[in-house]
């Protein structure tokens, strides 16, 4: 069944969109990532104009994250306090990132920068997670092996403005989460995604939060950052396509519910390995696009 999208001005198959939404939704629910880094390139591929794809994607992430966070709230795996601290940094960072995006757009190199940030961040995050989780998995298989001591006191603990995050079982300064939130906000705005794939590892490795809490908390703050981005896109570029969003998010919210349940059945280390493989695969695909000679050297962009 073909459907004509009013803002994107293209006709696409409705079931294809439902399927795409569902697939990405499952991954989103499993890993606590918004799925933007997967969905946005997929939408480009099926012929949705990039500006519409990026803006509509933000709207879809709101839906799948909200659906996911409800499931997590019920299980009390959301650290609301930490989420709010991250969020206040995140909104600030997103507003700043939008400005950077505008400057780069005027310079005509925004596409390259977006691609490069994807490759660098997906590569770094995916690689780091993969190595770390493999090590953790090996450890769990050899119970006799000496468990390396985790550094409980590093420089982060010397910072002022300490706060107690009960759900995460942490007592740390509010400064690192604020900085993490802001940094992810900047990247999210530039790369046009929720930023979960950076936020999740940052929470695990930089803030030392337990994996079970990380996913719900990440989803919680993503809702607000992407809602903010959606409004910005809707009011400045008129590129949010409601029909496209409804189809994708119908699939997406159902997928997210299924994904959350799958995620709860998997071990944390396994979850991290799968996520890192997924992230590395997308990174590899994007790197190839940059390195291989394209079949068409010219691209048509919308006139300014």
């Amino acid at each position: 069944m073909q459907i004509y999208l009013p803002i994107a001005e293209v006709s696409v198959n409705a079931f294809l969109l439902l399927g795409l939404g569902g697939m990405v939704g499952i991954l989103s629910g499993m890993f606590g990532v918004g799925g933007g880094f997967l969905m946005t390139p997929l939408l480009f591929f099926i012929g949705i104009p990039p500006a519409v794809a990026v803006a509509t994607e933000a709207n879809i992430i709101v839906a799948s994250s909200f659906s996911g966070v409800l499931a997590h709230l019920k299980r009390k795996t959301v650290d609301l306090k930490m989420g709010l601290v991250l969020l206040s940094g995140g909104l600030f960072g997103a507003a700043f990132g939008v400005q950077i995006f505008k400057i780069l757009k005027e310079m005509g190199q925004v596409e390259l920068l977006v691609m490069l940030s994807y490759v660098v961040f997906l590569g770094a995050v995916g690689g780091l997670m993969f190595v770390e989780s493999m090590r953790a998995l090996r450890r769990s298989k050899q119970p006799n092996a000496k468990r390396p001591l985790r550094k409980h006191h590093n420089w982060i603990h010397g910072l002022p403005f300490k706060m107690r995050f009960r759900t995460s079982g942490l007592y740390i300064s509010a400064i690192p989460p604020l900085i993490v939130g802001a940094a992810v906000g900047v990247l999210a705005a530039i790369m046009g995604v929720g930023g979960g794939f950076i936020m999740v590892p940052a929470m695990i490795y930089l803030l030392g939060m337990p994996t079970k809490v990380v996913i719900g908390t990440s989803l919680f703050q993503i809702i607000f950052v992407t809602a903010f981005t959606t409004l910005m896109h809707a009011t400045t570029n008129y590129t949010v396509d409601m029909a496209l969003a409804v189809l994708l998010l119908t699939g997406g919210v159902i997928g997210a519910q299924i994904g959350t349940r799958i995620g709860l059945k998997l071990k944390a280390e396994q979850l991290r390995i799968y996520l890192s493989i997924l992230v590395l695969a997308v990174c590899g695909k994007l790197a190839l696009d940059l390195l291989l000679t394209p079949s068409e050297l010219f691209t048509i962009g919308a006139g300014e």
């Binding site: 994250s65 909200f66 998010l249």
Partner: peptide
């Protein structure tokens, strides 16, 4: 602005409904 808010409302409703 209304369009943006409406899009968000639809998104939240859909998320809640699925849940």
């Amino acid at each position: 602005l209304i369009y943006g808010l409406l899009s968000l409302t639809i998104a939240i409703m859909a998320g809640w409904l699925a849940s």
